[in-house]
Write a protein that binds this DNA or RNA. Structure first.
Lengths: 138, 138
DNA sequence: CACCGCCTTGACGTTTACGTAAACGTGATA
DNA sequence: TATCACGTTTACGTAAACGTCAAGGCGGTG
């Protein structure tokens, strides 16, 4: 079997399965583990990744695309894992969620602004190009 | 005059004016200059910032919030400054704009996904807290 | 057996984005 | 005049996020 073991219900991935799928290096994946973001089972020394780890990797990379540091992502993971039960933890969790939401909403506004600027710049560009082709075809 | 010179039509800022306004250190602002992102005039050795520089700083920080590196931002600045006229440059400019747009749209999707997850997590949280208060108040 | 491909653990190197400290100039103020 | 508050340059330090060897284990194949 060369790739993911899809038998027995619980899919298993090797490190290079995930590396290929998400287009990251195995080095990066091991680094995320060193940083406490992943925790794959071992078969001897080999790492075995379940769907849970795969999801975590996906979340890590999504966080990266949004400019989050690995530290921030780990905090969220830890919170998610920890905040099962104790009221104090739940309160903290809600607070962090709200903060994260605020950041994301700021990012949405930033993105909207940049998209608008891109639109106007592109329009201006097309205008200049049109002028140019007009001038050179005359 | 202690702060920005708002006379003579063209507003002038000192480095600490901008630092205060955007909540960054003067060190950071000088660093952006070293990296070719800002280019303030000098009065002797002192830096004088115009509205243009102020706008650039704002763009730099917005880029940072979206996870852009200073290098990427500088590329955009350079392109903006360069692409005045030559058709080849305009074509390149349009291409880069399109690429940037694609990244931003991916970020929008990422943000939507995270916001949804935050919603469900927060709802679950509230449910647990409600249960808890019910159990402890009985 | 020898080689290949994939896996492992170190460990040092690199880039980015500043922080921090030293040492100094300059003008306003007590 | 001395002391701030603000500015400057130079330079070394640092955290993050890996890249890049080095050196080797393990299972299959010609």
């Amino acid at each position: 079997m060369t790739s993911a073991d899809t038998l027995s219900g619980s899919t298993i991935y090797t490190i290079s399965d995930l590396a290929r799928e998400f287009d990251v290096t195995t080095r990066a994946i091991r680094f995320y583990e060193d940083e406490g973001l992943l925790n794959p089972r071992r078969e001897g020394r080999k790492r075995l990744y379940t769907k849970r780890e795969r999801t975590r990797l996906k979340l890590i990379l999504r966080g990266k695309r949004l400019g989050m540091s690995l530290g921030e992502t780990r905090e969220l993971f830890d919170l998610f894992d920890t905040a099962r039960g104790e009221e104090r933890q739940l309160q903290l969790f809600m607070k962090i969620l709200a903060e994260r939401r605020a950041i994301l909403e700021q990012q949405q506004r930033d993105i909207e602004a940049v998209l608008l600027e891109i639109d106007t710049a592109a329009a201006e560009c097309r205008r200049l190009l049109a002028e140019h082709s007009f001038a050179s075809s005359a």
